[in-house]
């Protein structure tokens, strides 16, 4: 019997992002569609950053997990357009990032003038808005390094894109 699409979405919500395992692939907003093509389960995924090394791992993780859950055939399709934006990260995903110590991306800030400078970054540890950028790049291309001037803790900021 084929699992319902709602069930498949639940499964996808339980697959962790390989680089930031506190959020799921569904939270990340990169799963664009789920559907059946005859007896084949087709999951359409959009990449985060074009060079993100996690992209191929993500496709592998989805296929492995869905097969394990009982799907008979799985196909992963790549979709480039519309390009992924951090605005698609779910509200739950943002909370999980913050709880993990990564400041979630500002909303609707991706293409603004001034880029990082224009994004108000709140410290995920103490909630202070008095923060400063140390480097526009962090442990992965999607993050920048910040420091909180209130609690003095350094932290990663998930850049709006």
């Amino acid at each position: 019997m084929q699992a319902s699409l709602d069930t498949v979405w639940t499964w996808l919500g339980e697959i962790p992002d390989p680089e930031i395992p506190v959020i799921s692939l569904a939270d990340l907003g990169i799963i664009r569609a789920v559907g059946y093509d005859d007896d084949k389960l087709v999951v359409t995924v959009t990449p985060t950053y074009s060079g993100c090394p996690a992209t191929s791992i993500i496709a592998l993780d989805i296929e492995t997990e869905l097969l394990k859950r009982g799907a008979q055939k799985v196909e992963i399709r790549q979709q480039l357009s519309p390009a992924w934006t951090t605005d698609w990260i779910s509200r739950e995903g943002r909370e999980k990032l913050r709880a993990f110590g990564i400041a979630p991306p500002a909303m609707a800030a991706a293409n603004c003038a001034g880029m990082l400078k224009a994004q108000n970054v709140t410290c995920p540890h103490c909630g202070s808005e008095d923060t400063e950028n140390i480097s526009p790049r962090g442990s992965t291309p999607c993050k920048a390094q910040f420091r909180c001037r209130s609690c003095m803790e350094p932290f990663d900021y998930f850049k709006a894109i």
Partner: peptide, 12 residues
């Protein structure tokens, strides 16, 4: 499609 993806990275 490609340029809309790439331009987001190049702005940074």
């Amino acid at each position: 499609a490609v340029s809309a993806k790439v331009i987001k990275e190049v702005r940074y």
